[in-house]
Design a protein around this nucleic acid. Structure first.
Length: 612
RNA sequence: CGGGGCGUGGCUCAGCCUGGUAGAGCGCUCGGUUCGGGACCGAGAGGUCGGAGGUUCGAAUCCUCUCGCCCCGACCA
């Protein structure tokens, strides 16, 4: 491909509205162009990478017998009502109405009525396709003999994100591989789950990025278990903890926190209800230092406690107040609190309300004596005595708290945000290490949630009707391509992993005005293409060598082959590795052989550097 | 949705406070000199200053409303 004919405009400066590296580089490299917030055109270079990753995905899924199909992006409301999600999905579901519903709406308005327009929405843009696939399967599959079945599609999805950002990483429109499996029983669904887990490991390994499968939170009503696949990158939005002694790797939202020693486990004092006057003491550090009496001159921070008030909302619409008690230097993990009580939503109580409820300013709230509040205590405080806590009276703290004694009916559980350095709860030997990750895939055991609500059943060997057990498996295709850049770039531009590079070799001709040089460059281009390499030939005239090199670095193809009059005087061209910047001088006739050697070396490095 | 910021040639920005001929750099076109890490000279093309209304003799500039975009928070491939 001749670069002079390629649709591309590189930018020297970073567009102002690009905020993450992948977006900045893709825009500067002329790969994507923004059309609206979170909505992008994929220009030729970007599309090549996207297609390559799709192909890797297809090939690996085919090995597990998955079948590709394609469902519509525009979906009728009926199906979503059947699963119940029309009501619960929220504003991320972009809903609209067709001409018939519009006419109905207009007619009602004509009659002087003021109907709610939302009641007339009868279509949506699909953010995910459980409903449609379940509908297809229930219509076409009736017998256990046809199961299991694993179906997938690669399709443009739309989610009306509250805040689209980060370019392709969190767009509103994006390309996703979504797969769904159907099974006669749980055991079979579990086997498929692990088959997909392994397929995903193969897919991301082939991609050539560092990644981790991590145990994730499946939510209170979610399936029984789930793994997320994360590309490791400093700019990732998710925190991951990974044990350095075993395989346990999990999203910090879910990571089990070990119980740590807390408080004084010796002789218990009475809860001193006469309060310690602690004016101006809000933080735990001051609280610990401020606890003084005849026998104590301050305390360790591990003997203080902190308290959070939440309002939990349940699926049935009911609400409940929940108080969480943790050691003073620990962080609360709201996801654990939410899952423990089985809430659908959990929100930190607004400060004014919490102050009204407890009768104390922030910093002086505590769990003792609160009515109608479910009290949860982190398990690190189990057995602890002589803790301090807010006294629910401004400028006062209690001293001598024993949760088991002073908080009747409280529940001890793991409420804490695990932290780097904590001892692993699985092996008990290693310590957690922390990483940042970009979630690019998820495998999820759905169970019978959709098959039950939508009547997706089969006849078993006894002729008895059963709901199918389902699993679902997603990969954010466009996000993954962006994530690969987030992980692989330098000050000069992108460093493409070989398997998804738009082109593999960039032939840069420095003197296209010279017929001899131009013809050798074209010959090298032809030779490489004939050998199966994908080549972009920078044949543009009138640009200085520096400008061409800058562009080549920005585009970031793995290998650059420089063809210039200077080198050809000595009969050589130069092959440069984008990542290592190493240069090999070679004769043009040996280009194919040398490029092959370089490719083999790069692929070898990818294999050793990948995920585990 | 709450809080903050920004909309001026394709890109980055100045001009706005204090109203009076719409600017610079990059990119693009043409000519010339250059030519191994974003060269130089000259000549060009390209903008209803996000939109609507208002104040004024006169608005990119002041006022009102609106739309879009970006950042920070609660949600997610």
């Amino acid at each position: 491909m001749k670069q002079s004919k390629l649709l591309i405009q590189t930018l020297r400066e970073t567009p102002r509205d690009a905020d993450v590296v992948s977006q900045q580089l893709m825009m500067r490299a002329g790969m994507i162009q923004k059309v609206a917030a979170g909505i992008y055109s994929y220009l030729p270079l970007a599309l090549r990478s996207i297609r390559k990753f799709e192909e890797i995905t297809r090939e690996e899924l085919a090995k597990d017998g998955c079948q590709e199909l394609l469902m519509p992006a525009v979906l009728p409301a009926d199906l979503w009502q059947e699963s119940g999600r029309w009501k619960f999905y929220g504003d991320e579901l972009l809903r609209f109405c067709d001409r018939k519903a519009k006419a109905d709406l207009a007619e009602r308005r004509q009659r002087g009525e003021t109907p709610d327009e939302r009641d007339f929405y009868n279509f949506c843009l699909g953010p995910t396709h459980e409903e449609v696939i379940t509908d297809i399967v229930r219509k076409n599959v009736r017998s256990y003999k046809q199961l299991p079945m694993n179906l997938f599609q690669i399709q443009t999805k739309f989610r009306d994100e509250r805040r689209p950002r980060f370019g392709l990483m969190r767009g509103r429109e994006f390309t996703m591989k979504d797969g769904y499996s159907f099974h006669a029983d749980d055991a079979c669904a579990d086997r498929e789950y692990w088959a997909m887990f392994n397929a995903y490991k193969r897919i991301f390994s082939r991609l050539g990025v560092k990644f981790r499968p991590v145990e994730a939170d499946s939510g209170a009503i979610g399936g029984s278990f789930t793994h997320e696949f994360h590309v490791l990158a400093g700019s990732g939005e998710d925190a991951i903890l990974s044990c350095d002694g075993c395989e346990y790797t999990s999203n910090i939202e879910k990571t089990e926190a070990p119980a740590l020693h807390a408080g004084d486990k010796g002789k218990a004092f009475e809860l001193k209800r006469d309060h310690f006057v602690t004016p101006g003491v809000v933080g735990q550090v001051e609280q610990a230092a401020g606890m003084k009496d005849a026998e104590h001159d301050g305390m360790p921070i591990t003997q203080t406690s902190k308290f959070f008030l939440y309002r939990a909302t349940f699926a049935d619409g009911g609400t409940r107040l929940v108080g969480a008690v943790l050691r003073g230097d620990h962080e609360v993990n709201p996801v654990k609190v939410k899952n423990l009580i089985g809430a659908a939503e959990l929100e930190l109580m607004p400060l004014e309300e919490a102050e009204a409820l407890t009768g104390a300013k922030t910093g002086f709230m505590g769990p003792v004596g609160l009515q109608d509040v479910t009290i949860l205590v982190d398990r690190s405080l189990e057995g602890a005595v002589n803790l301090t806590c807010g006294a629910n009276r401004t400028n006062y703290h209690h001293f001598g708290l024993d949760p088991a004694r002073d908080l009747p009916g409280c529940t001890f559980a793991d409420l804490r945000m695990a932290a780097e350095g904590d001892t692993c709860t699985r092996c008990g030997k290693g310590n957690y290490q922390s990483f940042r990750g970009i979630e690019v895939g998820q495998v999820f055991k759905l169970g019978v949630k959709y098959s039950k609500s939508m009547g997706c059943t089969f006849l078993d060997e006894q002729g008895k009707e059963n709901p199918m057990v389902m699993g679902c498996y997603g990969i954010g295709i466009t996000r993954t391509v962006a994530a690969a850049i987030e992980q692989n770039y330098d000050a000069d531009g992108i460093i493409w992993p070989w398997p998804i590079a738009p082109y593999q070799v960039h032939v840069v001709c420095l003197d296209p005005g010279s017929p001899e040089v131009a013809s050798i460059a074209s010959q090298v281009e032809k030779d490489l293409e004939a050998a199966g390499f994908e080549v972009l030939h920078d044949d543009r005239e009138g640009l200085s060598p520096g400008a061409k090199f800058k562009d080549a670095d920005l585009l970031g193809f793995p290998l650059r082959l420089t063809v210039g009059a200077r080198g050809l005087k000595d009969g050589i061209v130069e092959l440069r590795d984008r990542r290592t910047k190493e240069v090999v001088k070679l004769k043009p006739e040996t280009a194919v052989a040398e490029v092959s050697v370089a490719r083999d070396r790069i692929m070898q490095e990818l294999e050793t550097a990948g995920g585990r």
